Amino acid sequence: MTASLTLDAVSKRFRGARATAVSNVTLHVAAGSCTAVLGPSGSGKSTLLRLVAGLEAPDSGRVLIGGHDVAGVAAERRGVGMVFQRSLLFPHLSVLDNVAFSARVRGESRRRARAQAAEFLEMVQLRGFGARRVDELSGGQEQRVAIARALAADPAVLLLDEPFSALDPALRADMHALLDELRLTVGPTILLVTHDRDEASRVADRIAVLDGGELQHESDVAGAYRAPSSVRVAELMGARNLIPGVMTDGIHRSELGEIPIPDATAHGPAVLIVRQEDVQLWRSEETPPSQHPLGTPSDGDRSVDAAGRAPLAVETATPAHVAAGWWAGTVESARASGARTDLTVRVTPSVLLHAEVTSAQAPRLGERVALAIPAGAAHVVTA
C-alpha cells in the first residue's frame, strides 16, 4: 500500500519553548516518491516527522495521508512505518520475530507472520539471519532489520529519521543502494530526514529545506542545488560563491563585472550564486596574463587554453559552455577532500571565487589561473 502525504499549514510549539518548532509548513509528497527534509540541528526536521507519525499533535494545520486527514488517528493506525537513527529492535526477540512483530499484532498466526518476515529479510539482503539475536548484528544489519520490520507493517508512508547517520561511509552507501532497490520492488512513499545534503541528493526525488521551523525551499534535487530560493538555502546546500551586487535589466553587476542572467526576474540588490563545481578553471603558469585565457577570450573554440590544455573542472568545454565572463586570479588555498580539491582563488582585492577540481590536477598555492562561469550556471536571489 502506497499513498501520498500532505502537510497543510502545519505548526507546532512545545510548552515552555521560546520558538515554534514547526511553523506553517506546507509540503506534498507524491505517492511512491521520496522527499528528503534537509536542515541543520534544531531546524524542526524530527518534529515534522513525529507530527506525521502521530507521535505529536499539531497545534494547527492538517496531516493528510492518501488525501484523508489523520487528526485523532492513533499512531499505530495511520499506516505509517518509522525508522529512527537507532534501530530500536526488541532485544528479547530473534531477528525473524522482530520483523514478524507487526503481523503478530495484526492477529496473524506465528507461522504466517514468520513466513512473511523471512520474505522481508530477503528483501533487505539478510536471508538466513532470522535466527540470530539482535546483539549479534552489526550496525548496518540492525538498520536493515529495522527497515524490514517497518516494511512488514505494509505502511502507506515510510518515515526515515536520519537512520544512516551513525554508519560509516561504506555502510551508508550500501544503505542508499538498498533504498534504491526497495523503491523499485515495493515503491513506498518516503519522507527522509537528514542533515546530509549528499545523502538527500543521492536518495530523494525532491528536497525540502527546513530552517528555524520554516520551510525555506522545496524543489527537485537540481533546483535545490542550482536554483536555491535564498542565500540561506544556498549556504545550507553548500554553495560557496555568493557575490553581492545589483540586478538591472537581466544583468548582475558586482566587483566581478557585468554577468548576464537572462531568466532572472530580480531587480535591485541581489546575490549572484555560482556553485564551485560549475566554475571552470585553467592552469596558467605558462600563459602570460595578457594572452587568452587570462585576457579577453577569443570567439573561437574555448575547449582548451593557450597552452592546449583542457579545463580541469570539466573534460571538454563545448559551445554550450560559452562563458559569461573570464577572470585571472591567484590560488590562495587548497583543501583536499578525497579525490577532489576545493580551491580559493583571489580575483579582485575583495572577491574570492571557489572552484572544485580533481586533486590530481589541483594547481599549486600562489599559481596564476584563469576562471570562467559557464553560461546558465549562475543564479541570483534578492539580497
Results as ranks from 00 to 15, higher is better:
residue 32 G to M: 09
residue 105 V to P: 00
residue 142 E to F: 00
residue 115 A to E: 15
residue 352 L to H: 14
residue 216 Q to F: 00
residue 301 D to G: 07
residue 208 A to P: 00
residue 31 A to Y: 01
residue 375 A to E: 07
residue 264 A to L: 01
residue 331 V to F: 01
residue 24 N to H: 13
residue 71 A to R: 12
residue 277 E to F: 09
residue 80 V to G: 04
residue 290 S to R: 14
residue 179 L to S: 00
residue 226 R to F: 15
residue 227 A to G: 04
residue 1 M to G: 10
residue 111 R to C: 03
residue 69 D to E: 08
residue 156 A to Q: 15
residue 82 M to P: 00
residue 264 A to D: 11
residue 278 D to A: 15
residue 349 P to I: 09
residue 112 R to E: 14
residue 46 S to N: 07
residue 63 V to L: 05
residue 323 A to S: 11
residue 10 V to I: 13
residue 370 A to E: 04
residue 231 V to A: 15
residue 57 A to R: 13
residue 209 V to H: 03
residue 88 L to E: 07
residue 298 S to D: 14
residue 199 E to K: 06
residue 98 N to A: 12
residue 69 D to A: 09
residue 381 V to S: 04
residue 284 S to N: 10
residue 100 A to H: 05
residue 299 D to I: 05
residue 231 V to M: 12
residue 9 A to S: 12
residue 152 A to S: 09
residue 118 A to V: 09
residue 16 G to I: 11
residue 364 R to F: 05
residue 202 R to F: 00
residue 111 R to F: 09
residue 150 A to T: 07
residue 265 T to K: 10
residue 269 P to M: 05
residue 142 E to V: 01
residue 280 Q to W: 10
residue 284 S to K: 02
residue 23 S to E: 13
residue 219 S to L: 08
residue 129 F to M: 12
residue 251 I to K: 03
residue 93 L to I: 06
residue 105 V to K: 06
residue 354 H to A: 13
residue 175 M to T: 03
residue 298 S to W: 14
residue 79 G to R: 05
residue 245 G to C: 12
residue 203 V to G: 01
residue 344 T to N: 03
residue 163 P to K: 10
residue 380 V to G: 04
residue 269 P to L: 04
residue 287 T to I: 15
residue 25 V to H: 02
residue 330 T to K: 05
residue 72 G to A: 10
residue 230 S to P: 07
residue 19 A to L: 12
residue 335 R to M: 08
residue 50 R to C: 07
residue 364 R to Q: 15
residue 141 Q to H: 03
residue 28 H to K: 11
residue 55 L to P: 01
residue 195 H to I: 05
residue 29 V to I: 14
residue 355 A to V: 14
residue 120 F to S: 03
residue 374 P to T: 14
residue 278 D to T: 14
residue 286 E to L: 14
residue 124 V to N: 05
residue 93 L to W: 04
residue 10 V to R: 06
residue 202 R to A: 15
residue 105 V to M: 13
residue 266 A to W: 06
residue 380 V to C: 11
residue 37 V to N: 01
residue 280 Q to D: 02
residue 167 L to A: 11
residue 57 A to I: 12
residue 119 E to T: 13
residue 50 R to Q: 13
residue 311 P to A: 09
residue 369 V to L: 08
residue 316 T to D: 00
